[in-house]
């Protein structure tokens, strides 16, 4: 393969991904994903696995609900 074909591969693919990265950053800024971090950081908690409660223990080692809630 000639050298300009490699240039096309390297710069073509690299350029496409660079542009996609910039586009993603712009999209994130426009949609407000780079603001309101406090809310986003809590978005992983649900009613089933709420904030303030540990959700993983060794089998048969779970502390009582009161002890567990108070200590986290």
């Amino acid at each position: 393969m000639e050298w300009h074909a490699y240039v096309f591969i390297i710069f073509g693919l690299g350029g496409a991904f660079f542009i996609s990265a910039i586009a993603t950053l712009c999209w994130a800024a426009r949609k407000g994903h780079l603001t309101n971090f406090e809310t986003v950081s809590r978005s992983i908690f649900t009613e089933d696995e709420p904030e303030g409660q540990q959700t993983d223990f060794f089998p048969s080692k779970k502390p009582s609900p009161i002890e567990e809630t108070l200590s986290v």
Partner: peptide, 25 residues
């Protein structure tokens, strides 16, 4: 995901996590 999820405590600084991502990228 798992560190804050298991502890039931949000990540210390979400801002730092975003900074970490973009600087790695």
């Amino acid at each position: 995901y798992f560190i804050p999820k298991v502890l039931g405590r949000p990540i210390h600084s979400y801002y730092l996590s975003v900074l970490g991502f973009w600087s790695l990228a």
